[in-house]
Nucleic acid binder design. Structure first.
Lengths: 148, 148
DNA sequence: ACAATGTTGACCGGATTGGTCGAGAATAGT
DNA sequence: ACTATTCTCGACCAATCCGGTCAACATTGT
């Protein structure tokens, strides 16, 4: 597994914030409930997202969390690399391999895959993810209509 | 990191066997030395490769390991999936997600990347990897020639 | 003052990783 | 039959990571 729950949950949380953009701070408890994330674990992810500059948090009653920038200016690549660290599929793809090692033998294959992956992830914004989710919801509603 | 040392070392070992195809069994100690893999750890990887049907092993003096099929009939995808298990980058990409979860939100992006990745890996054979390594060696020799 | 909320860091059990080690089984050569 | 060589198998182990809990504290609105 390339991504741990950090990347999964973290992006879920960001999608939730993006969906409620402009409605004031969203509370930890709400995010946790809607996205099925353990509340106390979500803490750590929000802290990481804050340090990464993706969200702003305000304390006290009526406090909560909001996006630091518009959803269409946050791409999935930045988000995931901030949450997970490097997404390199293989050790020797990331580091410069020091000397003339070349002992790995499959690095060139993975370099291609990795580059392509990063391009794709960079092309998807948080806004795209929200839009996709809204589309999916509409689909569900429609199919339910015909079933019932 | 998507791949652990299992996938890295395992493929290294297979490249080594492919490179010495037709020269009789290659011994564990040789592979370990040439490819810089701890000998006793290599044991486990060879066992896994044997169970996966990729190699045959013979005991006793003069024994060792050889490819079970020609190198051009073994693709990187099969090897890695046998060594590492599923290469799915995200939980929800692999399992059918049970009910109408769709809570992940980024699964569609990763499904595309995953499919593409598997196609690429399926297109690379062990023979390709050996050829690439030989090319690389020639390059090194050539550049060394000019430097000296 | 008090309640609501976020912030931080310590801690924890279980799984996985990346090995080591030793006893044993098969086989070739003598 | 004996021995040296080589693979085979499973037990074991230390370190790290993962997913998560918890308690103590800081900040702010009323």
């Amino acid at each position: 597994m390339l991504l741990s729950t950090k990347g999964d949950y973290g992006v879920r949380a960001m999608i939730d914030l993006a969906k409620h953009e402009g409605e004031g701070p969203v509370q930890r408890a709400e995010i946790a409930r809607r996205r099925q994330i353990p509340e106390s674990y979500l803490d750590h992810l929000l802290a990481q997202l804050r340090r990464g500059g993706f969200i702003r948090s305000t304390r006290g009653p009526g406090g909560g969390h909001e996006l630091a920038r518009p959803a269409d200016q946050i791409c999935l690549l930045d988000l995931l690399e901030s949450l997970e660290g490097s997404l390199a599929p293989l050790q020797c793809v990331e580091n410069p391999a020091g000397g003339p090692e070349a002992i790995c033998g499959q690095d060139w294959v993975w370099k291609e895959i990795y580059d392509d992956m990063r391009v794709r992830l960079a092309a998807v914004s948080l806004a795209d993810l929200v839009e996709h989710e809204r589309d999916h919801e509409r689909e569900l509603v429609t199919s339910a209509h015909y079933v019932i």
